[in-house]
Simulated assay, not measured.
Amino acid sequence: MEAKDKSDQLFLNRLLDLSRKANAINWITHTDFLDLHQLSLAKSYLNKAGVNYQTYGGYVQAERVMLFMYPTGDFDHPNYEYDNHVMYIRIELPSIISGKNPTHRDYLGALMNLGIERKLIGDLLVDEQGMSMICMATIGTFIMDQIVSIGRNKVSLITISKSDFERINNQSYKHIKGTVASLRLDNILKLGTGLSRQKSVDYIRMGRVFINGKEASQISLTVKVQDIISIRGVGKIRLENIGKPTKKNRISVEIDHYQ
């Protein structure tokens, strides 16, 4: 995957600087949180350059991740604490809310209004009782002190553990059962997200769809069990199971749509 514009090239230049710094200081360097496009671009670039790296976003299924680069050669790092770079925060809504439940956009907007850059914020998991988030540890205390309301609703903030965050993540999805004509990417997107077929195709062609973190630009790609499909601006789905063909020769599938 090549740089598409000046912004991509500046990003790759920054990666190169971090890689060189890792060698100069003989220690690990890292990026801020990357979006799916940046991650796909970075992996392609670093793999070609032969740079050793590790991604980490706070939990296994993280969509937004940091990228840690290691010095070249025989570098030992078994006890490196990736978790030291992040903080897990829970925003709790009141028992009785004013208006509709806040959306992902509402929570993110409240954070951006504090002057926080998006690259310092990892995944946000929204549910009916509130939102759980991952952020850079350097801004966690600031967020805890500054966020007092989301829209017209007063909220309370607490720090939570990684295990609590993972438990919440495992509960934050809708299980969908249905049938598709084939396991083509556009068919799975349509069923799993509720998007129209044309909208699904448009998102793929716009470079906004990723399978397991890699940009998926072909509508005809076949989706496999446990593939995680992320759609920028829409959400994330996972193909959980493929069943037997129906009498009409359609394929039964089960999909988890993460909220």
Rank of each mutant, 00 (worst) to 15 (best):
D5I: 07
D5Q: 04
D5G: 07
K6E: 01
K6L: 04
S7I: 13
S7E: 11
S7C: 09
D8S: 07
Q9I: 11
Q9S: 15
F11D: 08
L12K: 07
N13P: 01
R14Y: 15
R14P: 08
R14C: 12
R14W: 12
R14Q: 14
L15E: 03
L15N: 03
L16N: 15
L16E: 14
L16D: 15
L16G: 09
D17S: 14
D17Q: 13
L18H: 07
L18A: 05
L18E: 07
L18T: 08
S19P: 00
S19N: 06
R20Y: 11
R20N: 11
R20G: 10
K21G: 01
K21N: 05
A22E: 05
A22H: 04
A22T: 14
A22F: 01
A24D: 13
A24G: 05
I25T: 09
I25W: 00
N26P: 00
N26D: 14
N26H: 12
W27I: 06
W27T: 12
I28Q: 01
I28K: 00
I28M: 02
T29G: 02
T29I: 05
T29S: 02
H30S: 12
H30A: 11
H30T: 14
H30Q: 09
H30F: 09
H30P: 00
T31D: 04
T31R: 02
D32G: 05
D32M: 03
D32I: 04
F33C: 04
F33M: 02
F33E: 01
L34I: 11
L34D: 06
D35L: 00
D35R: 01
L36C: 07
L36F: 02
L36M: 08
H37C: 06
H37E: 06
H37A: 07
H37R: 04
H37T: 13
Q38A: 10
Q38G: 08
L39M: 09
L39P: 02
L39Y: 10
S40T: 12
S40D: 14
S40P: 03
S40Y: 06
L41M: 08
L41H: 10
L41N: 11
L41F: 11
L41C: 13
L41G: 14
A42K: 05
A42F: 15
A42H: 12
K43G: 00
S44A: 10
S44I: 03
S44P: 06
